[in-house]
Design a protein around this nucleic acid. Structure first.
Lengths: 105, 105
DNA sequence: GCCTACTATATCGCCGCTCGATATAGTTGC
DNA sequence: GCAACTATATCGAGCGGCGATATAGTAGGC
């Protein structure tokens, strides 16, 4: 779910584009299957985290099948809060010496 | 689960001690209920992440009921790997401007 | 012409983890 | 006598992720 929020944080994307963004960003370590992806999208729309766009891109670059999504303000705040939560976890891990090369932890 | 690994990363602890360590470390934001705690411990022993100590502490500071646990080498490696995974997520979140005060990210 | 791979969306059921509720039981303090 | 704390344990509900499966159009190789 957080991966989907991350993928939509910088710009709107359609489902398949989210899948590829996650795979690229993680160097292939995280792969979203269609079950995870479209199931999550459905739930996240219901939760008000993301919304589907009405507007279509220019017809010459469009694909009818695509459905575009973007973060809502609420989704953005949830993503930020989650990112901060993870940051705290990472700091704790540094303090417990679970991570190498501490600059300031 | 990661919270339990974190709690045991610096020293061995008994179950209730893990509960309090997590609550203190997170400033009360994360509270492990007994269901999560003892269910996780059971599973994590089965997975070889943690192990129960045979030795008891000095009788004058001991409580018979307590059961002490520590990380195995495998558990330590899993905790490190997970910490690195989270670190990558945090870096991505920084790159997408979901986190304030970027020094280098 | 046929097969494979890619783009794109969608549903289903299983499984693993977390959580709250509940139980037990001894100790301390009011 | 009662509430709060220490300490462990089990159970069932619920949520989220995942693999499998389905549909369907397009592109490329042979």
């Amino acid at each position: 779910m957080f991966h989907i929020l991350l993928a939509l944080a910088d710009k709107e994307r359609h489902g398949y584009h989210i899948m590829r963004e996650v795979e690229e960003r993680t160097g292939g370590n995280v792969k979203l299957g269609p079950g995870t992806l479209y199931g999550s999208i459905k739930r996240m729309i219901g939760d008000g985290l993301i919304e589907e766009l009405e507007e279509r891109p220019a017809p010459d670059v469009d694909d009818e099948r695509r459905r575009y999504y973007r973060l809502t303000d609420f989704g953005y705040r949830v993503a930020s809060a989650e990112a901060q939560r993870l940051e705290h976890l990472v700091r704790s891990a540094r303090a417990k010496k679970l991570l190498p090369r501490t600059k300031a932890g």
